[in-house]
Simulated assay, not measured.
Amino acid sequence: MGVIKLKNIRTFSYHGCLVEESKIGSNYRVDLEIEADLSTSAVSDKLADTVDYVHLNRIVVEEMAIRSELLEHAAKRIVDRTLKELILVNRVEVEVSKLNPPIGGDVEEVTIILSKKR
């Protein structure tokens, strides 16, 4: 078993419950971690034998571009799509963080974490 991590994927998205958030948008950070059997690719040195992190990044960017009221909803789409499209993935964990959230306080970020096993 092996792990692939994509850290600090930055997006500008329009998630949130407030009407203003759908108009002005916010900065987000996404961290993605997958577990997969990487033993074949470690020997073969072939992209076809592993989980392509370009594909993982594309999933995150495309799903974060779809507006959601809740971060949980965006994270679930990322998790579900990863498991659907990448058969080698056995487990996925995603952290979605809204930077400088409009919650009336000095808060650097709000983060939700979802994970799922095949």
Results as ranks from 00 to 15, higher is better:
1 M>C: 06
1 M>L: 06
3 V>N: 10
4 I>P: 01
4 I>D: 03
5 K>P: 02
7 K>L: 12
8 N>M: 09
9 I>R: 06
11 T>P: 14
11 T>R: 03
11 T>A: 01
11 T>N: 07
12 F>G: 00
12 F>C: 02
13 S>G: 02
13 S>L: 07
15 H>Q: 06
15 H>N: 04
17 C>T: 09
17 C>L: 15
17 C>S: 11
18 L>N: 07
19 V>W: 14
19 V>N: 13
20 E>R: 10
21 E>H: 06
21 E>K: 04
21 E>W: 11
22 S>L: 08
24 I>M: 09
25 G>E: 06
26 S>G: 14
26 S>V: 05
27 N>I: 07
27 N>L: 03
27 N>E: 11
29 R>L: 12
30 V>R: 02
31 D>M: 05
31 D>K: 00
32 L>G: 03
33 E>Q: 11
33 E>L: 08
34 I>Y: 05
34 I>F: 13
35 E>A: 10
35 E>M: 07
35 E>V: 14
35 E>Q: 13
36 A>Y: 13
41 S>V: 01
41 S>M: 04
42 A>P: 04
43 V>Q: 14
43 V>C: 08
43 V>E: 12
44 S>V: 05
45 D>F: 04
45 D>S: 04
46 K>M: 08
47 L>R: 11
47 L>A: 15
48 A>N: 13
48 A>T: 15
49 D>N: 05
51 V>C: 06
51 V>F: 09
52 D>N: 10
54 V>K: 12
54 V>A: 11
55 H>V: 15
56 L>C: 02
62 E>R: 15
64 M>L: 05
64 M>S: 06
65 A>I: 14
65 A>N: 14
66 I>C: 06
66 I>M: 08
67 R>W: 09
67 R>I: 11
68 S>H: 11
69 E>Y: 12
69 E>L: 12
69 E>W: 11
70 L>E: 08
70 L>G: 02
70 L>V: 03
71 L>D: 04
71 L>Q: 05
71 L>A: 03
73 H>P: 02
74 A>G: 02
74 A>Y: 01
75 A>V: 02
76 K>N: 15
77 R>Y: 00
77 R>E: 00
78 I>E: 01
79 V>L: 04
80 D>R: 04
82 T>Q: 00
82 T>M: 05
83 L>N: 00
84 K>H: 08
85 E>V: 08
86 L>D: 13
87 I>N: 15
87 I>D: 13
88 L>D: 10
89 V>A: 14
90 N>A: 06
91 R>L: 06
95 E>I: 13
95 E>K: 06
95 E>Y: 14
97 S>G: 08
97 S>V: 02
97 S>Y: 03
98 K>A: 09
102 P>D: 01
102 P>C: 02
103 I>W: 00
103 I>F: 02
103 I>L: 10
104 G>M: 11
105 G>D: 12
106 D>Q: 14
106 D>N: 10
106 D>C: 05
109 E>Y: 13
110 V>P: 05
110 V>M: 12
111 T>Q: 09
111 T>V: 11
112 I>T: 11
113 I>A: 15
113 I>H: 07
116 K>T: 11
116 K>A: 12
117 K>I: 12
117 K>G: 15
118 R>H: 07
118 R>Q: 13
